[in-house]
Each structure stands twice: as C-alpha cells, then as structure tokens.
Amino acid sequence: MTGLTLHNTGERLTEYALLMRLHRPIGILLLAWPMYWALWIAGAGAPDLRVLLVFTVGAVVMRSAGCVINDYADRDFDPHVRRTTARPIATGKVSPGEALWVFGALVVLAFALVLLLNPLTIALAFVAVGLAAGYPFLKRYTSLPQVGLGTAFGWAVPMAFAAQTGAVPPIAWLVFLAAVIWAVVYDTMYAMVDREDDLKIGVKSTAILFGRADRAIIGLLQALMLVNLVLVGRQAELGLFYYLGLAVAAGLSLYQQWLIRDRDPVRCFTAFLNNNWYGLAVFAGLVLDYL
C-alpha cells in the first residue's frame, strides 16, 4: 500500500512538473535575462548575492505559476490546438481545481521569497502577481496579449532595481521597456506557430493582428529594442564589451528574420527559441564590461 501511495504521489508530482513546464526551461530563461541585466546594472557588476539567489529562484517559481494559470485559463482551448493537446489539464490528468491549488502554492512560495527583501520590492511584488494572473486571459479581449506577457515578465526589472538599490531610477524603466519590446518580438514568433489554430478557435494575438506585415513589424521592434539597449548603455556608461554584446544580439535578430522568412511554424518556433541566445549575448556583454 505504501509503495502504491508513493507511486501515485510520484505520478502527481510528475504531472505538476509538466503543468509548470519545468521540462521546458526556455520561459524561465526569457524571464531571467532582463532580470539579470537589471541586477548587474543596478549592482554595477556586483549584485548582492542574497538578492541574486532570491531573484533566480523567484524567476523559476513565478514562470511556473504563470504556466499553471495559463493552462487553467486555456483549458477549453488547448484540446483544439495541435501544440497543446498533450498538456496535463487538456488530457484530464490534472483537474482545473488542482491547477488552482498548485498556482496558489507557487504564489505563496514566491511571496515567502520576496519577504527576504526590502519593503519597496515587497510592494512591487503585489503588482507582479496581478500581472502574472491576468495575462493569460488577455487573448480573449485584446489582440495585444504579447504586451501583457512583456509587462508581466519585465516587471522583474523594476523589482530588481528596488531590491538592489532601494529605488527604481529612470534607467530601470528603460530596461523594462526593452524587456516589454523583446517579449512582443519573441512571443509574436511563438504565436506565428499557432496562428491557424488560433484563428479557428477565436484566440487573439499580435501574429494575427500584424498579418502579412508580421516580419516587418517584428523587424521594426527588433531595431527599436536595439536602440533602447544602446540608450541603456549610454546612461549606465557602459563600454566596448557591452556594445560587442549588442552587436552579437543584432546578428541574432537578422538570423531570426531569416528563420521566419517563409512563416514556417517549425522555423518560427526555432526563431523563438533563438531569443535565449539574444538574452545571453546582452548579459555576457554586461558581465565582461563590468569585469
């Protein structure tokens, strides 16, 4: 009986891990890179170790919570989209009620982590939870849910500055803006994968909104983000290595444009994944410059 119970518990935990997308860490990385940019700038290349650890664990927890509430919100859509039919709620392996319990537990854990930080960061954390909980429902009402995702992911930036410095200076909002623009870029590539299914079930996205202008608008946003990051570099008085990192990032943007040129779903997904290297290039430039 004990063995059976342990087996059942293991199965439940496995399904919860799948629900949180722990087997697909790309979302954690895309959330974490702007957060790390912010921590390194706020800490002048030497962020506080406790703050760094709290934010690293927090990124995993909050991205997991976002995935859970997203699948709860999409529980009636996912069975009809080819890419999402195997998700735990869509297959019935996790009930919607269970998903809400998992989401609640993750939010409590995230809040326990943020209590280790200063009052301003704690106050900003309440906004973060609201953004994470609200984002998945935007695709029903607006064609710009990618902006909502960018705001939710990017909110880690002002929180990072607040935790490191006790304030949210103007440069923090420049980095935040870069994070929002970047999310619109990579999540539009992601939405291009599901465009046909989303049109059938009535889900909205920037990929549908942009239509045949999708590549051009993504390109404009990529250029705007690069300009924004140059402004960040100038305001933070960064040097050669940072701009070399931006040069690599610009090259990756061109590669992503090449990947999405035919709007092939597989290549669009590859372009989406490639944004991890974009975030790493900017971060590597920052680290080397401060060193």
Score class of each variant (00 low, 15 high):
1 M>C: 12
5 T>Q: 14
8 N>K: 15
11 E>V: 15
13 L>P: 02
15 E>L: 12
15 E>C: 12
16 Y>E: 11
17 A>C: 09
21 R>G: 03
23 H>T: 14
23 H>E: 13
23 H>N: 15
27 G>Q: 11
28 I>R: 04
30 L>P: 13
33 W>M: 09
33 W>I: 10
36 Y>N: 05
41 I>D: 10
44 A>W: 14
46 A>M: 13
48 D>K: 13
49 L>E: 07
49 L>A: 14
50 R>G: 01
51 V>I: 12
53 L>C: 09
56 T>H: 12
59 A>N: 10
61 V>E: 06
62 M>K: 08
63 R>Q: 12
64 S>C: 04
65 A>I: 08
66 G>R: 07
70 N>P: 04
71 D>K: 10
72 Y>F: 15
73 A>Y: 07
73 A>Q: 05
75 R>I: 04
75 R>L: 02
76 D>R: 15
78 D>Q: 09
83 R>E: 04
84 T>G: 06
85 T>L: 11
86 A>E: 15
86 A>R: 13
87 R>Q: 01
89 I>D: 06
91 T>M: 09
91 T>V: 10
100 L>Y: 08
100 L>T: 15
105 A>Y: 06
105 A>C: 05
107 V>S: 05
109 L>R: 08
109 L>M: 14
110 A>P: 10
111 F>A: 13
111 F>C: 03
112 A>C: 11
114 V>C: 02
115 L>F: 07
116 L>K: 11
117 L>I: 03
117 L>E: 14
118 N>S: 06
121 T>C: 05
122 I>F: 01
122 I>S: 03
125 A>L: 01
129 V>Y: 04
130 G>Q: 03
130 G>V: 02
133 A>E: 02
139 K>A: 02
139 K>R: 05
140 R>Y: 00
140 R>K: 02
141 Y>S: 00
142 T>V: 04
144 L>T: 08
147 V>C: 01
148 G>K: 02
150 G>Y: 05
152 A>P: 03
156 A>Y: 00
159 M>K: 02
160 A>G: 11
166 G>D: 01
167 A>D: 13
168 V>S: 01
172 A>G: 05
173 W>I: 05
176 F>M: 01
178 A>K: 01
179 A>C: 05
182 W>G: 08
182 W>F: 06
184 V>H: 07
185 V>K: 06
187 D>T: 12
188 T>G: 12
193 V>H: 05
193 V>A: 04
199 L>H: 11
200 K>Q: 10
210 F>S: 13
212 R>C: 01
214 D>C: 14
215 R>W: 01
219 G>M: 12
220 L>V: 14
220 L>K: 13
224 L>N: 07
227 V>R: 07
229 L>C: 04
235 Q>A: 02
236 A>L: 08
236 A>S: 03
236 A>C: 06
241 F>R: 08
242 Y>V: 05
243 Y>N: 04
249 A>D: 09
251 G>L: 07
251 G>R: 09
255 Y>E: 09
257 Q>H: 12
263 R>M: 02
267 R>D: 02
268 C>P: 10
268 C>L: 04
268 C>V: 02
271 A>H: 09
272 F>S: 09
272 F>R: 09
273 L>A: 10
275 N>T: 05
282 V>F: 08
284 A>Y: 02
284 A>I: 10
286 L>R: 01
291 L>D: 00
